[in-house]
Design a protein around this nucleic acid. Sequence first.
DNA 1: ACCCAGGGTCATA
DNA 2: TATGACCATGGG
Length: 222
Amino acid sequence: MGGKAKQKAALSDLLLEVYHRLLARYGPQRWWPAEDPFEVIVGAILTQSAAWINVEQAISNLKAAETLTPAALRDLPFDRLAHLIRPSGYYNAKAMKLKAFVERLRRYVDLEGLFALDTQSLRQELLSIHGVGEETADSIILYAARKPVFVIDAYTRRILRRLGLAPEGDSYRAFQTLFTENLPKEEGLYNEYHALLVRHGKEVCRKVPLCLLCCLRDLCPY
DNA sequence: ACCCAGGGTCATA
DNA sequence: TATGACCATGGG
């Protein structure tokens, strides 16, 4: 094995080691916390820069109003939609995004039609919808369409930096490549790994600044 | 009182 | 392409 290949093998082992530690520490996360694919999508948009606890309230409001379907959201007056999702913050902006999504969905009839696209086309299509950026698009592909795409979020970046693994460039794609080039391409693994990173990020990285109690502390170069 | 959450868009340089 | 203002609620 050449030097390059050896380095890559080591990185792959490290990423798997991190995964197994998190899994042992927290257990399976059973993501995404939603009853169906459409609820995943609504949650992915509502959780943008918002605490999940507030998103849960907004989703709960939508369910109580029996409006958590594409057709119902299309029929819902804008102001009423905005009011229902108020707890998740940025409610006018997010009401606009939800409307944009369900309007675009008409082209494919339903989610099944949209998800019939190959992964690359699906990603491009999602990115072209107002309010859907890279993280939201990938969350939808992984957790709603159940296709193997690794989701990168703020927690993931923070944890990788702390482990001294942050890629050069610092871009979304660079972080994503780090995972996909060094892990088996499995939807189940990507699903659980990202969920665990988020769990770990919430649990430890903010509350315990230097990771003193962190299950990854001996992997930290700091 | 202040900080920031499982981001994204848009205007500007 | 890169930065900054803006979107807004609720819990720590």
